[in-house]
Amino acid sequence: MRLIGRPIKHSAFTLIEMVISMAILILTSQLLVATVGVLQKAIKVTQQQQNTINWHISTIQLDQFLADAYFTHHQDQDGSKITFRKPDTNQSGEEAETVYYLKRMKNEMVVVSQLDGYMPLLGNLKQLQLDYQ
């Protein structure tokens, strides 16, 4: 096309420029995919380490909490529970015994008292099987 004797130039990408830009785009996306893969592996390892740390902390907490408790085995309609009794003092200052048991609530393992108070021990559980030995 000519406008008053001059040719009109249309600026556009050439085929070589398009191929180069596609190559750059593919390389960038490959780097991004590789980075996401490495990050997912790092997150998985970190979560496993955190779960191990949580397991150790909960074991220490339970050991300290149960230092003077004694265990019994209890069977009820929900199945077998690990029950323990701990010497305690009631509100009037008299010696009493509080009954606790280990239980799964949602996705946590907790220590539950007879008054329905509870102390979370482990989280993110998929399955929990308790055994008294």
Rank of each mutant, 00 (worst) to 15 (best):
R2I: 10
I4S: 06
I8K: 09
H10M: 08
S11D: 13
S11T: 13
A12E: 08
A12M: 08
T14D: 09
T14Q: 04
T14G: 13
M18Y: 04
M18Q: 07
M18K: 05
V19L: 15
S21D: 10
M22N: 03
I26A: 12
L27M: 07
L31E: 10
L31R: 08
L32Y: 05
L32T: 09
A34D: 13
T35G: 15
G37R: 15
V38M: 06
L39I: 04
I43H: 11
Q47Y: 09
Q48L: 14
T52H: 04
I53S: 06
N54C: 04
H56P: 02
I57P: 03
T59W: 04
T59P: 01
L62D: 00
D63Y: 04
D63T: 08
F65A: 03
L66N: 00
L66E: 00
L66Q: 00
A67P: 01
D68Y: 04
D68C: 02
H74F: 11
H74E: 03
Q75I: 11
D76E: 13
D76L: 06
Q77W: 05
S80F: 03
K81H: 10
I82L: 09
I82E: 04
T83F: 02
K86F: 00
K86A: 03
S92Q: 14
E95W: 07
A96N: 12
A96I: 03
E97H: 05
T98L: 02
T98A: 06
M105C: 00
M109D: 02
V111W: 00
S113R: 01
Q114H: 02
N124V: 02
N124R: 15
K126Q: 14
